[in-house]
Design a protein around this nucleic acid. Structure first.
Lengths: 217, 217
DNA sequence: TAGATTGTTAATCGATTAACAATC
DNA sequence: TAGATTGTTAATCGATTAACAATC
């Protein structure tokens, strides 16, 4: 990570921690169903295959304090996690590229409780424009500019072909987007201020396939 | 990572390296288009925002040797990367859960050059069974067992609701699946021998949303 | 040859794990 | 009280980055 130029706040949760937090949340929601009121870090750790100390450290970022001998209050923890992750508020987003993956994300989102709300999708393909997928309209790409004038959307999702990703990203930034969820393989060159979250399926496939090769000696 | 019980082969590429390798591959394919025959680690690094030493180390895992002052042969490197990652051979897979995300992966794959070939998809939903998505048949879930008797498929993809993921994973293992690509939030409890690659959208959303909160001070 | 780049070994950095005192 | 668990500080581990000799 590079110098961002501003003061470092109290403490930002490291990326590995952030990636684990939704796992805790999902597990705790299950646990709550069973009527469990308190749960300890060792118990959580055993179930999720994590070191108990790590669980304690991770959960500390939410601000919730546990009681020795008792553990954490399930309800309080769930609430704090949702709050910390922003899953309980509406996070509005634009999506560009209504192909297979884009369409899936549009349809998928309601099932997820991420608080991500895709307001509209954009595409240049005439056949897609005007359709609605998962209740979300696919608009002509150029409409991105006029719509972002009226709506103050901070999150952009890119599910286009690789070769147009950079251009789309720049357009998004010009439209006031502050964070980009990039599903393409393209490396985006943007201002340091813009938060870019790369999610490339091929990275995961690479790990899986290679590990499989390794296992066969 | 736990003790796996067998000798450690020469050297297994660490996960961060494996995740970066597809990025190199994609970049090199672009570079090849331009007719560039040789490319140096510093050049690659500059383009991809990586330390040149890291590029050298990463590429060393493919077995390709570069020439001082010249760099690496683009064509050779592309080939070695595809080979190392298994992207150039056919990696057969079964998919369970033909919902939104599952359907997307079925339709998506042909665009990707991961060499992943989903032979068939399975679902318990009557409305999905019999359909074909992206040229792949959705079969009755129980057919998984009979089909895996005939086909020697090693890779399973789980895109079901969270609460059935564990059961499906166990069934897959019983069907001879060696590696599971798990898109659910459920933590799978399986034999150490089974390779599990978790890909949870919510982890990425968590990082993105939290970083956005952090940025707003 | 001169100098950029590879390849490798050493130093740094950050995350995970261990140790332990505080506490309910 | 006794003892399990939290919370924090220290040790370990692994990946990234730096240093540098080898080489084309």
């Amino acid at each position: 990570m590079k110098e961002t130029g501003k003061y470092k706040p109290k403490s930002q949760a490291p990326e590995p921690t952030l990636k684990r937090l939704p796992g805790y949340l999902y597990f705790l929601e299950q646990v709550k169903e069973d009527g469990t009121i308190n749960i300890s870090a060792p118990t959580i750790g055993k179930e999720l295959g994590l070191d108990p100390t790590q669980v304690v450290k991770d959960l500390a970022f939410t601000g919730v304090r546990g009681k020795p001998r008792v553990g954490y209050n399930t309800y309080e923890l769930i609430h704090a996690l949702e709050d910390f992750l922003g899953f309980n508020k509406v996070n509005e987003a634009f999506l560009v590229g209504a192909g297979n993956l884009g369409a899936a994300l549009m349809a998928y989102q309601e099932h997820q409780s991420l608080g991500l709300k895709i307001l509209a999708a954009f595409d240049v393909d005439e056949r897609k424009i005007g359709k609605t997928i998962g209740g979300i309209y696919v608009l002509e790409y150029n409409k991105l500019f006029s719509l972002s004038d009226r709506l103050n959307v901070k999150i952009g999702i890119i599910t286009t072909p690789n070769h147009v990703a950079q251009e789309v990203a720049e357009d998004m930034v010009n439209c006031g987007i502050k964070a980009i969820w990039n599903f393409t393989s393209a490396k985006l060159g943007l201002s340091e201020k813009i938060i870019v979250q790369n999610t490339s399926m091929s990275s995961y496939a690479a790990v899986l396939l290679r590990r499989l090769s390794d296992a066969n000696l």
